Simulated scan of single mutants.
Amino acid sequence: MNLQTFSIIFAGVLLNSAAQLMLKAGAKTLGTVTMGSGQSLMAAACNAATQPWIVLGLVCYFVSAGLWIIALTRVDVTIAYPMLSMGYVIAALLAWQLFGEPLTSGRVLGIAIILAGVVVLSRS
């Protein structure tokens, strides 16, 4: 995989991670959504559709999907798809910083394993 292709994949991963964090920020403003009646779900959906963080997160997903399609025209899916795991690393570290989510020793070990796998895959 060349640097340009890796950059496209990494940009998509960054956007995907950003989307997750924006959706979380928007979800925090919504509060807990209950799975009650169809009417309550519709009200929650309308409320979510007006949350700027949620809308921006969905836009990031859309752009990320476009980059993903470009990446798939350049590399095998068996190489590209595991690279998405970098998104977990980025999201976990930023969620820890931005939302105070715990970063336990088990999560740190998992992140290290993911990063080792990404290095191995990027060299194949």
Rank of each mutant, 00 (worst) to 15 (best):
S85K: 10
S122I: 04
W68R: 02
L93V: 15
A44E: 03
L109R: 10
D76I: 02
N16V: 00
L109S: 13
I54T: 07
Q97N: 09
G38I: 10
T104G: 09
V77M: 15
M22T: 07
A116I: 09
G57Q: 08
A92P: 01
L103N: 03
L58S: 07
L41D: 02
L84H: 02
I79P: 02
R107D: 00
G110N: 05
L103D: 03
M22D: 01
D76S: 14
T50A: 12
K28C: 03
N2S: 11
L94S: 13
A95W: 04
G38K: 01
L15E: 00
W96N: 14
M83I: 06
Q4F: 10
L41G: 12
G31R: 06
N16M: 09
P82E: 13
Y88Q: 15
A80E: 03
G106V: 13
A65D: 05
A80R: 06
K28S: 08
F62K: 02
I113W: 04
T34E: 14
G12F: 02
T50E: 07
V120W: 12
S7L: 15
N47R: 15
M35G: 08
A25V: 03
A19S: 15
Q51T: 09
R123L: 12
V77K: 06
L103R: 04
G26D: 07
C60D: 03
L94P: 02
L3N: 01
T78D: 07
L94Y: 11
A65G: 05
